[in-house]
Amino acid sequence: MPRRSSLPVTFVVPTLVILLILSMVPTLYAIVIALQNRELSSTAYSYVWFSNFVDLFFDRRFLNAVWVSVKWEVVTVVATMAVAIGLGVLMFEVASPRLRNIYCLLFIIPVLLPRVSAAFVWKFAYHPLYGIATYPYRLLTGGLIFDPLSKPATALFAVASVDVWQWGLFFAVIVLKLLETLPPQPIEAARLDHARRWQIHAYVTLPMLKAPLISLMFVKMIESLRSFDLIYVMTRGGPGVATETLDMYAFSQGFIESGKVSYASAMAVLMMIATVITFTMLWKRVQA
């Protein structure tokens, strides 16, 4: 590479400046709005400093939303990784190369769908009377009604299942590709020692893939933050507040119920601080 060239500067600087402007302006402005008392219905506003944040800590619906978001994050990440590793290993073990290619293609389809589409597809499927996913239940129980989306106990899991349907199957493909990149010798050696199939994976292959699997989990944790579309279409945060995550609550406070833009922004700012700190720390650990 030539040492003296203007290329790095002309290529990097404009892009970074634009990225900085596009990201910092809204971020800083979100903080400014959070310190005011703006409402959608009026143009007048004044600075109220931290009173929005103080109010949040006494808002039981906000605390519920924090809890729901944490549950959502844990359920979707754990289930996605479990499905991905399970199906990835299965493909590696029992599928012929041709079948593997077919499965890989099939498993990528759900993740390509717009979240809105995926949400609709499953909202129909979960319909208590006419849904295709609830049909087996109706058939077995002779017409009893099971409505997963309107029961507080099951609603979150029903929505989470759509997220896992999209990401778990996709990650299974990646786990398979990762297994295929491993050198065959350690597996052969374990086989000669009469290790069972599941033991080979539990003690040899998966530990070898620890670093990429952790990166994969990190990506899923980031993507799980984007739950809004699924929840908005499938339950709107309901029944009650059973599936009301932070972004859903911020949206309904800011735009549906009361138009309290500043209050919503205070929530968004707290979310932003929490995620940026958490993921920066995680990233540094993953890289180290």
Partner: peptide
Amino acid sequence: VLSLRFLPPVAVAIPLMVI
């Protein structure tokens, strides 16, 4: 560049709407 992906979409969308 990666950290831009951490930003919650609501946190970007609310101020941008006002702007």
